[in-house]
């Protein structure tokens, strides 16, 4: 059981490495969130538990790449918070990455559903 859990955790880490940008963009789709809220949102999902130390430098890079906009806001007496939302470029990128993600899932599914020894049909679905 221990090995099983460990293997799952390793798998999650590996998969997140490649998909983190898509995950963040998807989390910000039609939402404006500050860091702690974004982290809370991700922690509510089983395979998405990233740390603060991963999130903040990444958000900074996404801002510099122009895919998210960030601005400080203060509501009433509360402390100012830095809110993130998708930029126009970020929205376009999310659309593209979504298509690529779905294509990858489709390809993996196709492999899983086509055991050998017969060759996999090269025609589309």
């Amino acid at each position: 059981m221990e090995n099983h859990t460990e293997m799952n955790a390793k798998w999650d880490v590996q998969l997140r490495k490649g998909t983190l940008e898509l995950v963040i963009l998807a989390a910000l789709k039609e939402r404006t969130l500050y860091g702690l809220e974004l982290l809370g949102l991700l922690h509510g999902l089983e395979t998405m538990a990233i740390t603060e130390g991963t999130l903040y430098p990444l958000m900074d890079r996404l801002k510099r790449d122009g895919v998210v906009d960030a601005n400080w806001q203060q509501e009433g007496q509360s402390k100012p918070r830095k809110y993130y939302q998708l930029s126009e470029q970020g929205k376009r990128k999310l659309t593209e990455l979504t298509l690529r993600w779905r294509k990858s899932v489709e390809d993996i599914e196709k492999l899983l559903n086509s055991p050998g020894p017969q060759p996999i049909s090269q025609k589309g679905k």
Binding site: D60, K79, R81
Partner: peptide, 12 residues
């Protein structure tokens, strides 16, 4: 960077 992290810590 510092301001954002400080804000997160006190919020948390």
């Amino acid at each position: 960077v510092i301001r954002e992290i400080e804000s997160h810590i006190y919020d948390a």
